[in-house]
Simulated scan of single mutants.
Amino acid sequence: MAKTPATSAKTTAAPKKPAARKPAASKAAPKTAAAGSEAKEKFAKAIEEAKAGVQALTSQAQDKAGEYRQKATTQSEALLGDAKEYGVQAKEKAAELAREGKSKASEAISGLGQIVADSATTIDEKLGAKYGDYARTAARTMQEGAAKLEAKDLGELGTDAKEFVKKSPGLAVGIAAVAGFFFARMFRGSSNNDS
């Protein structure tokens, strides 16, 4: 049979190269063992560094927490001190306003008594001596009440007011209503005069 060119190419193929040799297992084992122990050492060192870092961060966090706690305590003490100071100032201001109110009320009652006393002679002429005497008695009572009011301190006034309200609640409400009306008229009149 005749050979075709395709078959002749198969027979003239180049010879194969021998396969590369692998190093012997005994030589590779020491290198792998050395590399493994080196990796273990690096890993252990990394873990120790991480533990040290965690401890350092924990210590820093505790220090910061202590600083913040100290600042908060200091600030709360300062705020508490400020609140106490404001409370004292408020008490002083309230006592001052109460003293001023007592003084103004005493002056108003005394002034009203003086007006009634001054108009007693007119009442004598227009309505009779009997009604003029009522006006004089009322004026004297108002002026005595104003003097008593001025002489008492605020604690005594508070106690007296409580006892009066307990004894005569209806009368206390009526007096409060009349006094409120009187003061409203007085302040409204003074504000109209100012403008």
Rank of each mutant, 00 (worst) to 15 (best):
A2R: 05
K3P: 00
A14Q: 12
P15R: 14
K17P: 04
P23K: 04
A25Q: 13
K27F: 02
K27R: 12
A28L: 15
K31P: 03
T32I: 11
G36K: 15
A39R: 13
K40H: 08
F43Y: 11
F43I: 08
K45T: 04
I47P: 01
E49R: 15
Q55Y: 14
S59W: 07
Q60E: 14
Q62I: 06
Q62M: 08
K64Y: 11
A65V: 08
A65S: 11
Q70M: 00
T74V: 05
S76A: 15
E77G: 00
A78K: 15
G81A: 14
A83I: 11
Q89W: 03
Q89E: 06
L97V: 03
E100I: 13
E100N: 10
E100T: 13
S103Q: 09
K104W: 10
A105W: 03
S106M: 01
L112G: 12
Q114M: 07
D118K: 10
T121Q: 13
I123Y: 02
D124H: 08
E125D: 14
K126H: 04
L127K: 10
T137L: 13
A138R: 07
A138I: 07
G145T: 03
A147I: 03
A147T: 07
K148L: 05
L149M: 09
A151M: 05
K152R: 06
D153R: 02
G155Y: 01
T159Y: 05
K162Q: 05
V165W: 04
K167H: 03
A172Q: 04
A179D: 09
A179R: 10
A184V: 12
G189A: 14
S191A: 15
S195V: 06
